[in-house]
């Protein structure tokens, strides 16, 4: 069934591609105007993306199975992409480097495109199974994905940290480190909140706030990696490559928590997000 939100999200996907192209144009001509335009298009697309999510929400009510669109792989991918876009907007002041916005947009584009193009992702609106009928679902999913999005930015900065080309478009290392740390300052508390709300929810749904199911375990592992990063930085005074490396490990752990656990391991969470 082709619903209106599919069209809106399809359009948003195309505009992400356009934003990406605008970045290339910027790198070719290095005109400030183009970068300004990029930001405007990002804003507009963010509104469009938001509208897509809201329309899906409304559609679900039309189908008489109304629930917030945060409950299956498709919806979570769309929302993840939205969170990345939100994160670049929130960090706009710091992200004055088009190379960082470009990679962030690639991230957002990847997830939204994966959601709509992969044959393995069911795009339909499914009714909520009883275990997911809880307000904790919303707060849990929102906090988790905001943290994931923040870690995307941190990951991008860490990767750029290892790129050793002397390009004028490359931010200097201090800036990368600063943005990296800033995004972890958002990501870590959000991930903590995500794990804690997940635990509260599990208590109400399954009678046990922690059952070492693979998804829970992997989110704990991710949390430990970023805690180690903060301590390496703050207590041991680590900087530079080593810190960037921990951040990269942390991001792999995030991605494994999100995808790997679903596809490779089985557990309580395997029904959905």
């Amino acid at each position: 069934m082709e619903l209106i939100h599919h069209k809106i999200l399809g359009l948003a996907t195309i505009i992400y591609v356009i934003i990406l192209l605008l970045h290339f144009i910027y790198f070719a001509f290095k005109k400030e105007v183009i970068f300004k335009t990029i930001w405007w298009v990002i804003y507009i697309n963010f509104i469009l993306h938001t509208a897509g999510i809201i329309f899906r929400w409304i559609d679900s009510y039309r189908l008489d199975i109304g629930h917030a669109p945060l409950s299956n792989l498709y919806e979570s991918l769309i929302f993840f992409s939205w969170c990345i876009c939100l994160m670049i907007i929130l960090m706009k002041k710091r992200l004055t480097y088009p190379i960082i916005t470009m990679f962030s947009i690639i991230g957002a584009l990847f997830f939204i495109a994966y959601a709509s193009l992969s044959p393995g992702v069911d795009k339909g609106i499914q009714p909520l199974i009883p275990a997911l009928q809880s307000n904790w679902l919303h707060i849990h999913v929102i906090t988790c994905f905001i943290s994931y999005a923040a870690f995307v930015i941190s990951f991008i900065c860490s990767i750029l940290y290892f790129v050793r080309v002397d390009w004028s478009i490359m931010p200097d290392k201090d800036t990368l480190e600063e943005i990296n740390y800033k995004s972890i300052m958002v990501g870590f508390p959000m991930l903590s909140a995500g794990i804690l709300t997940g635990a509260v929810w599990a208590h109400y749904a399954w009678g046990s706030y922690w059952s070492w199911d693979p998804k829970e375990t992997w989110s704990l592992i991710t949390w430990i990696v970023y805690a180690l990063l903060l301590h390496a930085r703050f207590v041991k005074g680590w900087r530079g490559n080593r810190l960037a490396l921990i951040s990269i490990i942390g991001f792999f752990s995030v991605m494994f928590t999100y995808f790997g656990v679903n596809f490779l391991l089985s557990g309580l969470h395997s029904y959905a997000v």
Partner: peptide, 24 residues
């Protein structure tokens, strides 16, 4: 000591990974 923290947290993280690979 923070060294111990780093060691023990890494240990817990790595053995937790093991727990998700071997069915419990």
């Amino acid at each position: 000591s923070v060294k111990l923290t780093v060691f023990i947290l890494s240990f817990i993280a790595i053995t937790s990974v093991l727990g998700t690979l071997i069915k419990q």
